[in-house]
Design a protein around this nucleic acid. Structure first.
Lengths: 234, 234
DNA sequence: CCCGTTTTCGAGGAGCCCCTCATGTTACGT
DNA sequence: ACGTAACATGAGGGGCTCCTCGAAAACGGG
């Protein structure tokens, strides 16, 4: 990867932070990155503050809401994801593109618990990834269809079935991470074989519609009961 | 059989509960069943008490620990599971047995969030299911091997790979339950096709060893804090 | 009907977390 | 060197849950 060719302030207009403030902000982001990767989206902000060596109030000054912090942390990751899909699209062999796409996706999930919670359902994706997620999904569908049209992927599958890969890896990764951190790759390849044309047997259920996937992804799976994040107004 | 001089205690030996106590106990169990099915193993015991119409202290009198309550609720379910596997073992067509086993397993998971947390990793299984779980696993392996020996299941898979089905369904069920409650069946059939001989392509990772599965299942997935193994690269 | 035993009740200590805000501190332009 | 806006602090109020324990109530055998 080459360094960014763009001039320094493409999105300036942001007030420069005071030096100490910037330092603290960086510490918070670093601590949060670790905590969220390890503990998921519910990581304690007080823990983050402790780890960063600042008071809790400072965290709230920089990131008025948990969502703001999550956004800060994960737009980069989402960009990585989009990059991966774009690579996949560009591949000649559509099956290899398909594999690459899913493999990269799972790889990203595997190192970051919060990311796979995000990808699975935990927060309104549009709030976080914005158009990045939309773009990734559109491109992903494209990759899928290419592989299907070239006859690699079974005809009765749809791009929505790729969601099964994401959703299923959540459990696999969580269960095996401490015992065999790469086991998800084995599972992925079982699933890839399941997607192949040639050994397709009838499926008992219709595919999810894009809308259903959308709902499943937007439905906030909060820790039961009432979820404050459902309420838009802060 | 000769008459015993002692009052028989064939399997009871449990002190009879006072009538009101029994009533409360039943109410607690019923409320807990609902709450655990809906909210998982972390369901609030105070919520259960509220729902059952008793005070929190009463819950603790009947079930001194959360584990005791879970045990009460789930030994029956585990027995159902064992029954399902036994049916599977008895089937002539080993592939059908295999399918039946996995389908039934997933069905049980699908209606009960706590159960699939239990089956996945959330609590030391030996504490709960005791020999039931052990028995189910042994029989499950038998079903698997039969299907493999009859040439239905790919040769490079092992009984341990069946754990992937359980683990993966956790995410699927959670994500799709509110939108398409039967979607897990579709996913299951993708996986079944992935297990079939005939379309097997090389797998990138070795299978888990029985011991690894055991560790993964016994490792208490505590609510965060303790597992920092998971970090690797960035 | 009475009284010992069993059972229930629910306030309360302890822990963890969220988020706010009045107060004190610091950086930086002039 | 100084004033001020920007920033940091952390106690504190509000929630939720776990679990304990002494006092009060209910049961049921004699």
């Amino acid at each position: 990867m080459s360094p960014r060719p763009f001039p320094p302030a493409p999105k300036a207009a942001v007030k420069p932070l005071r030096r100490d403030a910037q330092r603290n902000r960086d510490a918070i982001v670093a601590a949060a990155r670790e905590a969220f990767a390890r503990e998921g989206l519910d990581a304690s902000l007080e823990g983050v503050a402790r780890q960063a060596g600042v008071a809790i109030g400072t965290v709230y000054r920089h990131f008025p809401t948990r969502l703001a912090l999550v956004e800060e942390l994960f737009t980069a990751k989402f960009a990585e994801l989009v990059a991966a899909v774009e690579e996949a699209v560009a591949m000649d062999d559509a099956w290899q593109g398909f594999c690459h796409y899913l493999e990269r996706l799972c790889e990203l999930q595997a190192c970051d618990r919060a990311l796979h919670e995000l990808l699975s359902a935990r927060l309104p994706a549009h709030v976080i990834g914005g158009e990045l997620v939309g773009r990734a999904r559109k491109l992903g569908a494209q990759v899928f269809r290419a592989a299907q049209e070239q006859g690699f992927v079974r005809a009765d599958a749809t791009p929505e079935d790729a969601a099964f890969v994401i959703w299923s890896q959540v459990g696999i990764i969580q269960a095996t991470r401490s015992v065999a951190p790469q086991a998800w790759r084995r599972h992925l390849h079982f699933m890839l074989d399941g997607f192949r044309a040639g050994c397709a047997h009838p499926l008992p259920e219709p595919p999810l519609t894009p809308l259903q996937v959308d709902e499943a992804l937007t439905t906030i799976e909060c820790p039961e009961h009432e979820c404050q994040e459902c309420h838009e107004g802060q």
